[in-house]
C-alpha cells in the first residue's frame, strides 16, 4: 500500500472571480457559446489527429499532431468552463464523449473530411485566421475566466497561423499541381467560412454583456490577413458567397459529424465510465 493511493493530492484551479458564472439569465447562452468554442477546437483537433502516421513527410506529420494537441488542450479549457457554467455535474469529458451530434455546436467548416493535404491545410489556415482574431478580442473579454483561456490559447494559435500562412504561400506558389490543389481547396471551403462571422441570438447575447466581440467586427481584419496570404500564394479569392453553408453552430450538421462521433465516442458508449 502506498501513501499515494491513500491521500491522492486533490487538484483545484486558482480562478479569478467572474460574476457572469452566477448570472442565471445568461446561463443558457453562455453555455451554448462556450460549447461553440470548445466544439470547434475539439472537432478540428480530431480531424488533424487523423493525419497522425499518414503525413506526407515526418515534419508535417509531427506538426499536425502537435497542432491537434494544442486544440484538444483548448477544448479541455472551454468545455471545462462550459460544464462549470452549466452546473449540472457534467465534466468536459462528459460533454465531449456523451453528447450526440445535434447537441454539438461547431461550425460546419471544421467537420468536413480532411481530403488531401491541400484541403487540410487550407481549412486550417482559414480557421486559424479567424481563431486568431477571435482570441485576440476574447483576451480582452469582460469575463476574466474567458479572457485567461483566450490569452493562453492565443499564443499557440499565433504559431499555428504563422505555420499555415507559410505553407499556403509555399504550396499555392509552388508547382502547377500544388497550385491547382490549393485553389480547388480554397474554392471548396470558401462557402463555409461565413458561418464564423454570422451572429445569431447566442452570439448577440454574448456581445451585449461584453463577453465576446461582435462577430462581424472580426471580418475586416480576417479578410486583410487572408487576402495578403492568398495574394502572395498567387491564389484567387473565390467570387462565390462565403456564407452559404450554415447551421453547425445551431446543431444542424453535415452527415460527416456523425462518423467522427462514432469513432471518437465509441469507447465511452461501449464501456461507460472507462478510464485509465
Amino acid at each position: 500500500m502506498t501513501a499515494l493511493a491513500d491521500i491522492s493530492a486533490q487538484e483545484t484551479a486558482a480562478r479569478p472571480d467572474d460574476p457572469h458564472l452566477a448570472d442565471a439569465e445568461l446561463k443558457p447562452a453562455f453555455f451554448d457559446w462556450l460549447c461553440r468554442m470548445g466544439d470547434n477546437t475539439l472537432i478540428l483537433g480530431h480531424r488533424l489527429s487523423e493525419w497522425c502516421g499518414h503525413g506526407p513527410v515526418l515534419e508535417e506529420d509531427i506538426a499536425l499532431a502537435n497542432t491537434a494537441l494544442d486544440l484538444i488542450g483548448h477544448t479541455q479549457m472551454w468545455l471545462g468552463l462550459a460544464a462549470e457554467v452549466e452546473d449540472k455535474g457534467r465534466s468536459a469529458d462528459d460533454l465531449a464523449f456523451l453528447r450526440d451530434a445535434m447537441k454539438f455546436r461547431n461550425a460546419k467548416l471544421v467537420e468536413l473530411p480532411n481530403g488531401d493535404m491541400a484541403l487540410t491545410l487550407m481549412r486550417e489556415f482559414l480557421f486559424d485566421a479567424w481563431h486568431f482574431e477571435m482570441l485576440t478580442a476574447l483576451a480582452k473579454s469582460g469575463s476574466p475566466r474567458v479572457a485567461e483561456i483566450a490569452a493562453k490559447a492565443l499564443k499557440e494559435v499565433s504559431y499555428h497561423l504563422e505555420r499555415t500562412s507559410d505553407l499556403i504561400v509555399r504550396l499555392g506558389d509552388g508547382t502547377e499541381e500544388s497550385h491547382h490543389r490549393m485553389q480547388d481547396a480554397l474554392d471548396r471551403l470558401w462557402p463555409y467560412t461565413g458561418e464564423l462571422f454570422t451572429a445569431d441570438a447566442v452570439d448577440e447575447a454574448m456581445a451585449k454583456v461584453g463577453i465576446a466581440p461582435v462577430l462581424a467586427d472580426l471580418q475586416a481584419a480576417w479578410e486583410r490577413n487572408v487576402n495578403e496570404v492568398l495574394d502572395e500564394a498567387t491564389l484567387r479569392k473565390p467570387e462565390t458567397r462565403f456564407d452559404v453553408h450554415q447551421g453547425g453552430k445551431q446543431g444542424r450538421h453535415t452527415e460527416h459529424l456523425g462518423y467522427i462521433l462514432a469513432e471518437m465516442q465509441f469507447l465511452q458508449r461501449a464501456y461507460p465510465g472507462a478510464s485509465w
Binding site: 501513501a3 499515494l4 491521500i7 491522492s8 493530492a9 486533490q10 487538484e11 483545484t12 484551479a13 486558482a14 479569478p16 479549457m77 479572457a147 485567461e148 483561456i149 490569452a151 493562453k152 499564443k155
Partner: peptide
C-alpha cells in the same frame, strides 16, 4: 509533472497537499 511533484513531496514527508492549476499570466 503533477505526479512527479506530488511523489517527490510525499518522499519528503508532506502529507496534505493541494496542486493548483493556474492559467494566468500564461507561461512563456
Amino acid at each position: 509533472i503533477d505526479l512527479a511533484i506530488e511523489s517527490h513531496l510525499r518522499e519528503h514527508g508532506v502529507r496534505k497537499l493541494r496542486l493548483e492549476r493556474r492559467l494566468s499570466p500564461p507561461w512563456t
